[in-house]
Design a protein around this nucleic acid. Structure first.
Lengths: 366, 366
DNA sequence: TTGTACGCGTTATCAA
DNA sequence: TTGATAACGCGTACAA
């Protein structure tokens, strides 16, 4: 086996493991082969001044030939940090969450971190299990968005325990104020106001709201924004125009129930000329039902949805939405976490970063 | 500090670290505190018969009190396996890929593995970098789908090197036959035939194809299926009816170009009564353009798309599609990988599992 | 300039 | 029944 390093020097190494190398080569292998000590190899590879040029060249040539790479696990154990973070989200087949992951991943690659993804599936138990299996040394910190079940049960002990063990958490979108950690949220209240103001200034007098039950914090805030914005515009909120969908209905007929509820809402309130929905799917479904009932969009009825996703852009008519900037949220969350991890002194001051929503006007509004 | 284990025994432990425990507790801490050796603690916690009941109870009580959990990194180093796999996909904000991840994650949780996700972003370099940063001991194996750029450049050295180092790979969807590894693919050829047969039996005489350039293997196979199915139905393929979109156009105006091309296609061929598109977006866009040109769907024109996603289910009219069963593909890929990792003897026989497509009929066909 | 010893946290083997 | 030791792979302080 001949390895030519320069025009001048040529090293000859006998093949040091007659069977094909299947296991990764370690410092130990190299040391044995070149008949030096492990630490010499280690130093040589890190170009230490302690080692002679000759030895360094020889070692580096050998290492390159056998494609030596330091073992990450050993480094993690030694350094007491893994350069890996855990991301727990309720669902991945979802435009917003996958955008967040994309943002996290982008920053992680940039700053040399790996990302372990865990799905809670909106279940409290899975959220706990996922966190426990990762909190045993596998990762340096968490980025997460709380599952609906956890929000509903209001059991947050696993977050507090994790934080107490010195593992930082950054929460995004679905957060709990009481937990001491950094947070990245969207301005749900302000977003709602933007939407309602838009509808009002476009001439809407009877704006319906399609939202979720109140235990999902974002739903509650968006509802609150709707109420406040109406008041600010001198419009008295009408309970008749508010539809609270139970989104725990993960049953087969979830969509049917949704459609029926919306149909009833529109039928019972013929004067509805605007709909504000707290997510894209509710908005899409509203448009579908409205058209079925003979309403033209946006002439008879204008629709705005929270959460900008693929559906909004490709529906007919295309949907006016509030973008949450999911990727930006992910990037921000990642930066907060990495900064905290790399900051030596423990900082007990936690930030909450608010990402502004953006009204993206499309065909469903005038 | 009193810890009551049973009605009979009560242990009293003095708080062994007066400041609040921030670092995770280790065997060493426990050993020191209880004044026994580390190995005694280790054995006691694993309920070894070597250790006396008394000691076991005491150690276990203490461990529970301080919430001891073995450090995963140390175990990984010792066992030479991490129980973690790497998943490299081109894009995560994509229904199919996120379904695959969901499938992988489900099996991983079930079998006690963690999942590190890396995004290649369709770039060769990022694919290589992602693989290199993970192949240094962080994971036990890969599941991946090849980036378009890699397919285009046909440079597969990183796959071969990884496999040669004894790290197994399972490829899904976008695979290369020549690489020695397990594979999970969809029957693109057969799926296309199902679609074409459906359109033909529904009365279509002039079926257009909207596909990608040939270097994406799935696009090529789907095109081939279209051709063969037409022949089998006694219809001569017409080059005029085939539109090959260059999907490397990631530019802002990508969608515009797509729309224009499709509009031209339909204008130039007024007799088109069926469109088969190799993905959901192309199919949706076709419907949109067709309606703009005054065609009724499905009366004048029937449309089928490959890849079943959110768009198909919520468009108006809803779209008939071929489902790839992304979640099932992910589950299968994960099982193949875990089985191989847990099988002691090296098995040089690689499987290719073909997942059947399913035609999901909706409103865009009669 | 090179090598020895130690520690990261764990388990397994062997000795006491 | 318990404990000392070695090993997994690495980096570094210190000794030679």
């Amino acid at each position: 086996m001949v390895f030519r390093k320069t025009a001048i020097k040529t090293y000859e190494f006998h093949i040091f493991d007659s069977k094909i190398m299947k296991r990764k080569v370690t410092l130990k292998h190299i040391a044995k082969e070149l008949d030096v000590s492990i630490s010499t190899v280690s130093k040589a590879l890190r170009n230490s001044v302690e080692i002679s040029e000759d030895t360094k060249e020889k070692v580096q040539a050998f290492a390159k030939l056998y494609n030596y790479k330091p073992n990450n696990i050993a480094l993690s154990l030694k350094n007491r940090k893994t350069k890996t973070i855990g991301v727990i989200i309720p669902e991945i087949v979802h435009y917003f969450f996958s955008m967040v992951i994309r943002g996290i991943e982008r920053i992680a690659l940039e700053r040399g971190y790996n990302v372990i993804v865990g799905l809670s599936n909106e279940s409290f138990d899975k959220e706990v299990i996922n966190m426990e299996t990762l909190a045993n040394g596998s990762i340096d910190g968490f980025i997460l968005s709380i599952s609906k079940e956890t929000l509903f049960q209001q059991d947050y002990h696993h977050f507090n325990e994790t934080i107490n063990q010195g593992m930082p958490i950054v929460m995004f979108d679905r957060v709990i104020n009481e937990i001491p950690c950094d947070k990245v949220i969207v301005d749900d209240l302000d977003g709602s106001k933007k939407a309602i103001n838009k509808l009002v200034s476009n001439g809407c007098k009877n704006i319906a709201l399609i939202t979720t039950k109140d235990y999902v914090s974002v739903g509650r805030l968006r509802t609150q924004g709707y109420m406040e914005a109406l008041s600010e515009n001198g419009i008295a909120p009408n309970a008749e125009l508010i539809l609270k969908v139970d989104d725990k209905l993960e049953a087969e007929n979830h969509l049917d129930v949704l459609e029926q509820s919306i149909e009833q809402l529109i039928r019972n309130n013929a004067t509805i000329d605007g709909i504000y929905a707290v997510n894209e799917l509710y908005a899409m479904t509203s448009m579908k039902v409205a058209r079925k009932l003979g309403k033209n969009i946006p002439e008879d009825l204008q629709v705005i949805g929270f959460t900008d996703g693929v559906l909004s852009r490709h529906s007919s008519p295309t949907l006016t939405t509030l973008s949450q900037h999911g990727q930006q949220m992910g990037e921000k969350a990642a930066e907060l976490l990495f900064d905290r991890l790399e900051n030596e002194e423990e900082n007990e001051i936690y930030q909450t970063i608010v990402i502004n929503t953006e009204l993206i006007e499309r065909e469903s509004t005038k």
